[in-house]
Amino acid sequence: MPNRTMTRGLGIAYAIAAAAVAAAPLALNAYWIDVLNSVGLYVLLALSLNLILGDAGLFNMGHAAFYAVGAYTSAILNTRLEIPILWTLPASALVAALFAALVARPVVHLRGDYLLVVTIGLGEIVRIALVNDVFGLTGGANGLFGISRPTIFGHRLTSRKPQEFLYLIWAFVAVTVFLFHRLEQSRFGRALNYLREDPIAAEGSGVNTARYRLLAFALGAAWAGMTGTLYAAKMTIISPESFGSWESVVIFLMVILGGAGSIPGVMLGAALVVILPELFRGFASARLLVFGLVMMVMMVFRPQGLLPYRLLRFKESDLRRAEDAP
C-alpha cells in the first residue's frame, strides 16, 4: 500500500520536527515555548478528532465535549482524592470513551450533516452541564482550581519553566503519532477507511459498520480525554469556557485544513491554526479577520487540505502496464 505506509520522507520530516521541538528552548523565549505547548495540545486534539472525522468520516463538531470530560475527570480525581494528575490518564481516557460510546450509540448511524447538528448540541449540553455544576462536582462557571502539578520521577514540573511541559506534551505527541500510524495500517484502520468511502459497500462486504463507527468515536474520545488531563495538569485551573463550541470548531478546522485522514496533514493544520494568529499580532484587532481570510482562500483553492490523505491521479506507469495486459 504505497501511500499509506510511513515513507522515508515522512520519517525524515518527523525527525526534523522532533529535533526542532527538542531544541526550541535554546532559541525561543517563554512566550513562544508556551505557544508550542499549545500547538502540542491541539495536535493531540486534532489527531484524536481525525480518527472520527478523517478516518471514519463521521462529522463530529462536538469534540471539545470529550476533551472537557477528560479534563474534569482528572481534575476531580486529583483535587478530591489527591491522585497524582498523570496517574489519572487512564481514568480520563476510560470515562471519555464510555461517555462517547454512550452518547454516540443512538446517533452514530446518522448521515454527515445530521450528525454534525447532533454533535454541536452535545458539545453545548456538556458545557452547560459543567456551568450548572453537575453532581456538585464541577465547580460551576468558576471551574476547578488547585490541580496539583505533575511529578515525573520525583521531579515537579512548574509553570515557571514551560519547557518542561513542552517535553511532556510532545513526548505524548510522539507516542500518539507512532500509535496512530500503526492503527492506520491495521485491520481497524482499513475498516474505517472503507466505511468512510462507502458505508454501504463496506457493510455489504462484511464490515460491521455500526461497531467500527462506535469504536472510532470511543477511541477518538479517549485520546481527547487524555489531552484534557495534560491540559488540566498544565493550567492547574479549568473552567467551562475552555471547552466551548469554538474549541470544537477550531479542532474541526484543523483536521479539514490539514487534510482529513492524513496524520502529517492534521498536525500541520493544528500548527498553522495556532501559530498563524500569533504571527498576525501585528494586525492587532484585525488579526482574526486576516486569519479568516486565509482559511477561506485555502478552502477555495485546496479543499482537500494541505497534505491530503491521497490524491486521485493517473500514473504513467500504471497506464503502460495496463496496456500490456492481455
Binding site: M1, P2, A191, Y194, E197, D198, A201, G206
Partner: peptide, 22 residues
C-alpha cells in the same frame, strides 16, 4: 451492488482486500 460501488480512492488491490475482510 448496483452501480458497482467500488472505492475510487483506493487501489485495485485494496478493493480486493476489502472483499476478504471476513
Amino acid at each position: 451492488p448496483e452501480g458497482r460501488r467500488i472505492f475510487g480512492t483506493l487501489t485495485v488491490q485494496e478493493n480486493l482486500d476489502l472483499g476478504a475482510f471476513t
